[in-house]
Design a protein around this nucleic acid. Structure first.
Length: 887
RNA sequence: GCGAGAGUGGCGGAAUUGGUAGACGCGCUGGACUUAGAAUCCAGUGGGGCAACCCGUGAGGGUUCGAGUCCCUCCUUUCGCACCA
């Protein structure tokens, strides 16, 4: 055994050992594991080409779960793959002139090589790469199935359009109303595309959140709940006449109790009625240069961002149409306005305007001088038509007032919120003008992208037959991999080889669809493909064995996108009989980000130069308070800018390679685990990481120096021990108990602490006489406790101490359990409180009665001083902890 | 604006159910070993006080024998949603 710890050699040897065993290959129904399957998986990475410490943290968490569960007797499977389609590859192509396929595949190879030294227990035989035709053909296949059943459908809808890049942009890609790449003002445009009917599953996706996902963080469940956004209300109509025909203008409201307070109706600029009225305006107001307010307003709202946050802060604007509809209950004539605050995509794209009891309507009415009526009263509070008060919109303790129609037919005065809503809904229903209705915020999932690097949507456009699905036998529709996008539109649209095809229905020449699928389609089911990567179908019975996944690990940023789509996709697969479960992820763990310190120096022009943390030396005063930081290169000061998310622009992305070369993967792994609770963000710190390295080195030294004694020691700890040895053993087992509890609840940072405590205990016990057996037992417990976090060094020491020969490979050695006997104590030290304040300690027999403990406490002179002869009114004894004397 | 979470030493963070606040580590101080440094080891390290002791978990109140933990009010902060009718 080497006297000094050499991480590179140790890690290389351990990895070679496990590679030779093909140790991480998971097999269905493996008889070696009595407890059955356990599927743990991390969200698959995008192959950017650069591995950073954040990856190390994420996959170490995954790996700790893998190893702990395997040591606990489970047949564990932990796969890995690549989210290989997407925009960054196209941008790299534009920048460097490389085909996205080539760039992506090179990155995958690179990243895989960078992950290798970390020693993660991935079953690479199950690797999935989403840009492989063998994978994405099943995206296409299921899409065709959905098309058949109407779950996928084609429609034309308003989207964000970048006029320079010639593509649709997602809401997140619109920055200040402009395209994030081109900088051009984004337009709203009606574009045909494919949608998946996720709203059909809205109810189920919502109720399942509470029913089936106890293993998910409440935060994520809440986010999904809000995203799905169920609201109960009333859908009703205002009647109107246009060109001699009676028509209905539908609106949705959750406040039907305020229907008597309607003073206007507002419709979205994209509302069909707005379009129609604008056309009438065009027809009426010749010549062409005449002022046409409706057309102008609609046109203006077409520009400008549609990002929701931006809309929320935009001033409320509108235009009166001069067109009137009839209030369904009062018969009043109500003017229709076009309002920029009405969303076409929610409800009916039209709302009743009740300025008295809706803050937005209030602001709108105030701006345009529309009447404001109070129809709700709360405990007689004063209502002002010039000043909005939050209680105006309250439903709590509300009563309807001034809510009688002129003819007396409808009267809600005195009714509270829910009775009024019921009555209004019934009255509307009786007239055939409305009914109660549940409205969802969730919208169908638009999956068409005018992008090259994605799954081709398998449809063909024929002049005669229209849109024709590609027949199943012709799948996959393979994406040509040699195209290099140049930033202007979709290169597929210019590629004749791809475009040209024949119509499957009539055989005439036709054109292929050039839109590709949203990459969230790829990530909606890859974790099922891991179970059967070579299957000739989308999934097979092996998926039934591994799924649902036992533990999913990933970032919270996917709370409403990927995690919602995957739940939806799973249900679609279930309804097609492909799988037999509703929810894909039994338990979800959202890991925190890894942050890093950042430092900069400003030059004369105010430009900041950011220093990589390792280039900076932090200086402290005599109390340990940081006072200044200097650059190592010139010793001159730099400005400390705090702890931030790792980013290229702040030059604080810590790359694992150099660190691992110096300190080893075990140190990197143990530090990212030790740095803080796994579900919270934690800062990377070179100094602290070195502290963890020191611990591993001490562990190595300890095993090296005690190796002979341990090897020659009895395998069982003697039944009777010296008090000092007994205390040490007690602490060892109590710490183990704590560590096992922390593993269960995924609080791995304190497991590292536990291992450190164990080493401290052993270090002080080694000098005690007859400590050999205890050291042997303790070293075994320590190595097994630490193993899931730092597998290489523990494996090496396990072998060196002869424990492998005795108990087999560390991989499958069962986790030790604390011994009852070691945990039992004959004597306990109790804390003595007087009136709840700590005043001393007494040592008593474990079974001592309350009276005995009290007597022992009172016999202590120090404690008597605080009791000061006063009568003890009450004694509270907490077994094994403390006694409190109340005087 | 709405919703959720978090505020503990110089720093990262501990403290299963209300029961010894600050585990473990970093940093810092002193010492040992070294020609010297690095490394390592030993001791100390919440604040105040010579001491007995007092004060301390964002602020203020409350419940309790006892509160970092429970309740109320407020402040700060992070995250999510954001004209959803």
């Amino acid at each position: 055994m080497e006297a000094t710890y050499d991480p590179a050699a140790v890690e290389h040897a351990a990895q070679e050992h496990w590679r030779s065993l093909d140790a991480y290959r998971a097999r269905e129904h493996d008889p070696r594991f009595p407890k059955g399957k356990y599927y743990v998986c991390s969200m698959l990475p995008y192959p950017s080409g650069k591995a950073h410490m954040g990856h190390v943290r994420n996959y170490t968490l995954n790996d700790v779960v893998y190893r702990f569960k395997r040591s606990s007797g489970y047949n564990v499977m932990s796969p890995m793959g690549w989210d290989a389609f997407g925009l960054p590859a196209e941008n790299a192509a534009i920048e460097k002139g490389i085909a996205p396929a080539k760039w992506t595949r090179a990155n995958i190879a690179d990243m895989k090589a960078q992950f290798a030294p970390m020693g993660f227990a991935f079953d690479w035989s199950r690797e999935v790469t989403t840009c492989d035709p063998a994978y994405y053909r099943w995206n296409q296949w299921l899409f065709l199935k959905m098309l058949e059943r109407g779950i996928a459908y084609r429609k034309t809808q308003v989207v964000n359009w970048d006029p320079v890049d010639q593509t649709v942009l997602a809401n997140e890609q619109v920055v200040d109303g402009c395209g994030w790449r081109s900088g051009a003002p984004v337009e709203k445009r009606e574009i045909p595309g494919y949608y998946l009917a996720i709203t059909r599953y809205a109810e189920e996706l919502l109720t399942s959140l509470e029913k089936d996902l106890e293993g998910w963080p409440t935060q994520v469940r809440l986010m999904q709940e809000n995203w799905i956004g169920r609201s109960e209300g009333v859908r009703f109509a205002f009647a109107y006449e246009l060109e001699g025909k009676r028509q209905l203008l539908w609106v949705f409201t959750t406040r039907a109790d305020t229907i008597m307070g309607v003073t206007f109706v507002a419709i979205a600029p994209e509302h069909p009625l707005a379009t129609e009225l604008a056309q009438r305006e065009l027809a009426q107001r010749e010549p062409a240069h005449a002022v046409r307010p409706l057309t102008a307003f609609i046109e203006a709202s077409r520009h400008g961002g549609v990002a929701d946050a931006e809309l929320a802060t935009t001033e409320k604007k509108g235009v009166p149409t001069g067109f009137f509809v009839v209030h369904p209950l009062t018969g009043e004539r109500i003017e229709v306005w076009i309002g920029n605050y009405v969303l076409m995509s929610y409800g009916e794209g039209a709302v009743m305007g009740v300025p008295g009891h809706d803050e937005r309507d209030f602001a709108f009415a105030l701006q345009y001088g529309l009447p404001i009526r109070q129809v709700i009263d709360i405990e007689g509070r004063e209502f002002s038509a010039t000043q909005w008060m939050p209680w105006y919109a309250s439903t709590e303790g509300s009563r309807c007032i001034h809510s009688r129609s002129a003819d007396g037919r409808y009267d809600y005065d005195g009714k509270d919120y829910s009775h009024a809503v019921d009555a209004v809904a019934a009255d509307l229903a009786a007239r055939g003008l409305g009914e109660k209705r549940v409205q969802w915020r969730l919208r169908d999932w638009g999956i068409s992208r005018q992008r090259y690097w994605g799954t081709p949507i398998p449809v063909i456009h024929c002049e005669d037959c229209g849109v024709v699905p590609v027949p199943e036998k012709d799948l996959p529709v393979v994406l040509p991999e040699d195209l290099v996008p140049d930033g202007t539109g979709n290169p597929l649209a210019k590629d004749e080889r791809f475009l040209a095809c024949t119509c499957p229905r009539c055989g005439k020449p036709a054109r292929r669809e050039t839109d590709t699928m949203d990459t969230f389609v790829d990530s909606s089911w890859y974790y099922m493909r891991y179970c059967c990567p070579d299957a000739a179908q989308m999934v097979d019975e092996r998926t039934g064995y591994w799924m649902p996944m036992d533990q999913y690990i990933g970032g919270i940023e996917h709370a409403v996108l990927h995690l919602l789509y995957a739940r939806f996709w799973t249900r679609v697969m279930r309804d097609f009989g492909l799988v037999a479960f509703d929810e894909p992820f039994e338990r979800l763990f959202t890991q925190g980000m890894l942050l890093a310190h950042c430092y900069f120096r400003e030059d004369a022009t105010g430009r900041r130069r950011w220093f990589y943390p390792a280039e900076v030396e932090q200086q402290f005063d005599e109390r340990g308070v940081p006072v200044s930081a200097v650059a190592k290169e010139d010793g001159r000061p730099v400005v400390y800018a705090g702890i931030e998310k790792m980013s290229k622009s702040k030059n604080n992305v810590v790359e694992p390679r150099a660190f691992i070369e110096r300190f080893g993967a075990d140190t990197a792994r143990a530090f990212v685990i030790f740095a803080g609770p796994p579900d919270q963000s934690a800062p990377w710190s070179d100094k602290s990481a070195e502290g963890v390295h020191r611990f591993l080195r001490r562990l190595w030294m300890f095993c090296h120096s005690e190796r002979e004694r341990i090897a020659g020691a009895p395998r069982r700890v003697p039944a009777t021990l010296d008090p000092a040895l007994k205390r040490a053993r007690h602490e060892l087992h109590a710490t183990l108990q704590q560590a096992l509890f922390d593993y269960q609840r995924m609080q791995f940072n304190t497991v590292v602490s536990a291992a450190m405590i164990m080493l401290n205990v052993l270090e002080s016990a080694k000098a005690l006489p007859e400590s050999g057996a205890l050291l042997r037992e303790g070293a075994g417990i320590l190595l097994q406790t630490l193993y899931p976090i730092a597998p290489h060094i523990t494996h090496a020491l396990w072998v060196e101490l002869g424990l492998a020969a005795e108990r087999g490979d560390l991989l499958d050695a069962p986790m030790p359990q604390p011994s009852e006997e070691a945990l039992r104590q004959e004597e306990l030290e109790l804390v003595v409180q007087v009136n709840g304040k700590l005043r001393g300690r007494v040592t008593v027999a474990a079974e001592a009665s309350e009276e005995a403990v009290k007597a022992a406490a009172l016999s202590d002179e120090h404690i008597r001083k605080f009791v000061a002869g006063k009568p003890v009114r009450k004694v509270i004894l907490v077994r094994g902890k403390l006694i409190n004397l109340v005087v």
